[in-house]
């Protein structure tokens, strides 16, 4: 913080000159557009959503405050609890896979190889393609009759009949998770790759001379030095996955038997097609504790470790 005390403006100075001089006033003026923007497009919708959750608003009819009634009914709603389970399963499974595969890919891309830049660009593709488009592609890949996977497996004589990817509870869950992992890997891989590149090669050389095997270098050098970035990346990844909507909505709309229904899709379904804005809002608000949990996890994970801190005795 600059502790600059502004010189006392002489009384003869005009009002505008005073504003020009005062660091605080001019600072606030410059912040105003951003503040207004945030207030209207972030704070207001969030507040409105929380408020709607406490009302019985329906589409086309203003609701009344009904306290926790929406939440009480959700407590007894077995579909809601199934959806919570689905969301957690989806998030945990997809995040673990994204982390494992993303880290692996990052390590591969960090090696010296020909066409390095080309491969790094290719890895980003799943992330560049709009989600809805890639979801439609997956819809075809997972088609019960024309699936290219089923076709290939049948040609290889590994299976005799097409796999019912999206029609069976377990298959559908695995399929949407696979699609989400495919889409999420680039983010994890490229972020971790950036982290890997900040590790000085001389540390690896020093460890090699100290007698470390490849695995030991990964275990004792790469992983600990990457941990701050892993914490950030995985927090974001968990947040994105937990609130996922597009993939599910295009691929399964929550089916079969609601086995792939997530909190975001259920919230939308109840609020817009179902018309119960209040209840939909309550489901959306119910996601907040989970997301806060993820953020707290990252907050503690992100805390500067002792070794990252500087000088002071």
């Amino acid at each position: 913080m600059a502790n600059v005390t502004a010189t006392e403006p002489s009384p003869s100075r005009s009002f505008w000159a005073g504003i020009g001089q005062g660091r605080h006033v001019i600072g606030i003026v410059f912040m105003l557009p951003a503040a207004v923007f945030l207030l209207f497009f972030l704070t207001y919708p969030l507040g409105l959503g929380v408020w709607l959750g406490f009302t019985d608003t329906r589409i086309g009819r203003a609701g009344e405050f009904i306290g926790l009634e929406n939440y009480q009914s959700l407590m007894g709603d077995s579909l809601f609890w199934l959806v919570v389970f689905n969301t957690i399963l989806y998030t945990v499974a997809a995040s673990i896979l994204k982390f494992g595969l993303g880290l692996w890919l990052a390590l591969l891309l960090n090696e010296n190889m020909p066409f390095k830049a080309f491969f790094r660009a290719v890895v980003l593709l799943p992330w560049v393609v709009p989600t809805v488009l890639s979801a439609i592609a997956f819809w075809w890949i997972f088609d019960s009759q024309y699936s290219i996977i089923s076709w290939a497996l049948i040609k290889m004589e590994l299976i005799s009949a097409p796999i019912n990817f999206l029609g069976d509870v377990a298959n559908a869950r695995a399929s949407v998770i696979a699609a989400n992992v495919w889409r999420g890997i680039p983010f994890v891989a490229i972020s971790l790759l950036a982290g890997l590149q900040t590790i000085s090669p001389s540390l690896h050389e020093a460890a090699t001379l100290d007698g470390a095997t490849n695995w030991q270098r990964f275990r004792y050098i790469t992983l600990p030095m990457l941990s701050p970035i892993i914490a950030v990346v995985m927090t974001f990844s968990v947040l994105f996955t937990f609130t996922d909507f597009q993939l599910i909505y295009v691929l399964t709309r929550g089916g079969p038997l609601n086995s792939t229904h997530l909190m975001a899709t259920l919230s939308f379904q109840r609020a817009i097609p179902g018309g119960s804005l209040g209840e939909g809002a309550a489901i959306a608000v119910a996601m907040i504790p989970f997301l806060l949990g993820a953020i707290l996890f990252s907050y503690f994970g992100l805390q500067r470790r002792k070794w990252q801190q500087g000088g002071a005795d």
Binding site: L203, E205, W307
Partner: peptide, 30 residues
Amino acid sequence: KERDIAMVFQNYALYPHMTVGANMGFSLKL
């Protein structure tokens, strides 16, 4: 690691996430 040599690097190449003691004992730990 079989050459039985030790090297001091220009930028020291100390492991930033290990204490001084752990840095010095790393090769023995391995």
